[in-house]
Amino acid sequence: MPQSTTGSIDSPSPQWRGGAAAIAMLTFAVDGETPVLAAGRRYAQHAMAMSHQAYDARRGLPRLLGILAEFDISATFFVPGLCAERWPHAISAIVEAGHEVAHHSYSHRPSTELTPAEERWEFERGLEALHALDIHPVGYRSPMWAATWNSAETATSIGLGYDTSLMDDDRPYIIETTAGPLVELPPHWSLDDWEQYAYLNEPRIGNIIEPPEKAMQLWLAELDGMREFGGLFQLTMHSFLSGRPGRARALRTLIETILERGDVAFRTGAQLREAVLADPGVERRKLEPVVADPHTYPNW
């Protein structure tokens, strides 16, 4: 049976939106070399692959920070701990520009491929790396959104306040854990630039390069849908992808278009978490793992 819920998610104007038709949350993953190294340690020897990812902090991130400054918009940047160690000045520059930095594991290895102890190590080691830069994150995103049924409990137990890894909604809700409430800010693949721009021949982290116009068409359709149905437009970008010149220009146009709509408010993850916790009508849930019968589903 579906989990029973409390509160009404169909309220015409929930408090968490603050009177806006929809909330836009601009998020950026500053992954650096971690997604490639997660595919295999041997890729550290591939100079092209490493340089492809170094574009992230060297050029893409400063360009995107400049565009956000043009509009005085605060965004949320998800940073793996290893990237914080390799590029400390770049990550500190995010905070200095007035943006939020959130937790994105240590190594960017998908949690679903780790043991519970390994996943917890990723949480703790990534947190240590951010603390070393005097960054104290509130939010978390699983690498590749590969959350486990343990992720929410672990995140809350180490003091994190929101997650953005689960895709069963397009509005925020609260997960009840044994360590306290965890705000879930649901993402979706359709609002991720990886599915539009990611290409690398080895390792094969993606095999597509779409024009920014196509990405814009998809994202604006989702934006207007969220405006009609009152949802969270959470755009996920990567500075080694969306920081490329033509794509960065498209992001500027997207922001201009959102502002022209006139009924969408921008929020960081931390700001949205506070708004969700203050709204008594927000749905609360307990995660219930799916149990697959081995006789019905014999293939592991």
Rank of each mutant, 00 (worst) to 15 (best):
T177W: 01
S165D: 15
S151C: 08
P181M: 05
G180P: 11
P212W: 00
Y162G: 10
E122M: 09
W121Y: 04
I158H: 05
G230N: 05
T177Y: 01
A215T: 05
D168S: 12
A250M: 09
I174C: 04
A132N: 12
M144G: 12
T253E: 09
W149I: 11
I208L: 15
D168L: 13
H131Y: 14
E176Q: 14
R247V: 05
P203T: 04
L133T: 13
L235T: 04
T178G: 10
P187L: 03
A146G: 14
K214T: 06
P143F: 10
L191K: 01
H238N: 15
E184W: 08
V183F: 09
L254G: 01
P181D: 12
Y197S: 12
I135P: 03
W189K: 11
P172K: 00
E202Q: 09
F240V: 10
L182I: 15
M144H: 09
G206Q: 11
G246P: 01
L254H: 03
N201W: 01
D163T: 14
G206W: 06
L133R: 10
E118W: 14
I175H: 04
H188D: 10
R120V: 02
W219G: 00
W121C: 07
V138L: 09
I175K: 02
W149V: 05
A215N: 00
E213K: 06
H131I: 11
I205C: 07
R244C: 11
N150R: 05
G180M: 14
A221E: 12
A179S: 15
G126L: 13
T236E: 02
F240H: 13
G159C: 15
R244M: 12
Y197R: 12
V138R: 09
R204K: 14
Y197Q: 10
W121R: 13
W219M: 03
F233V: 05
E210M: 10
D193V: 06
G206E: 08
M167W: 10
Y173A: 00
H136M: 10
G126P: 03
W145V: 12
G139W: 08
E122S: 03
L235S: 06
L200E: 13
A179C: 14
K214W: 01
T156N: 12
F229R: 15
M144A: 14
Q217H: 15
T154R: 00
M237Q: 08
E119N: 03
V138N: 04
L130T: 08
E228S: 13
R120H: 11
P172V: 12
G180S: 12
M226D: 05
A152K: 06
S239A: 07
L223Q: 01
A155K: 14
G161D: 07
T177H: 11
E124T: 15
A147K: 07
A146E: 07
Y173Q: 01
K214I: 08
W219Y: 01
E122D: 08
S151R: 08
E119I: 04
A215G: 01
R252F: 09
S239F: 04
Q196V: 02
I174T: 14
P143K: 08
A147D: 06
L133W: 04
N201Q: 11
L218R: 14
P203E: 08
L133N: 05
S142N: 11
L218P: 00
P187N: 05
Y140V: 02
E228G: 02
